[in-house]
């Protein structure tokens, strides 16, 4: 119980990941969806760093990859907020359910 290992982190990461998906599904606010995406990315990132810690090799490949993920997430957030603002400008709301003009 007190010996914290890889599995502990993976469990946390998994739960965070799934909660992120839940947030993505259930929030109608575009920013809320973005928050869900950030949670998913964080969950994945915990995985990367945890595997890097417990893979038995003394390299930092996992950490560098997670660094890239963080950078990508930041870039994605910037773009997403810009998209949200455009969305808001066009539809006067951030409710993503209104963005169904292309529905079949």
């Amino acid at each position: 119980m007190f010996e914290i290992g890889l599995t502990h982190y993976l469990v946390v990461a998994t739960l965070l990941f799934v909660m992120g998906i839940f947030v993505m599904i259930t929030k109608r606010n575009a920013i809320g969806i973005l928050i869900g995406v950030e949670m998913v990315l964080n969950g994945a990132n915990i995985n990367l760093v945890a595997f890097n810690r417990y893979n038995g090799m003394s390299n930092i490949d996992g950490q560098i990859t997670s660094l890239f993920v963080i950078v990508l997430a930041a870039a994605e957030a910037a773009l997403a907020v810009a998209i949200c603002m455009n969305f808001y400008k066009n539809l006067n709301t951030v409710d993503v359910d209104h963005g169904d003009t292309l529905a079949g």
Binding site: Y9, I31, L34, I35, E38, N42, N45, V49, A50, N52, R53, Q63, S66, L67, I70, V71, A73, A74, A77, A78, A80, V81, C84, M85
Partner: peptide, 25 residues
């Protein structure tokens, strides 16, 4: 997890930057 650098980056970029961006959004 002994990933100090990533931790710091997480705080700076995410908690410091992305979050503010979200709130501004």
């Amino acid at each position: 997890l002994l990933a100090n650098f990533i931790g710091v980056i997480q705080l700076i970029v995410y908690a410091g930057g992305t979050l503010i961006l979200l709130i501004f959004g």
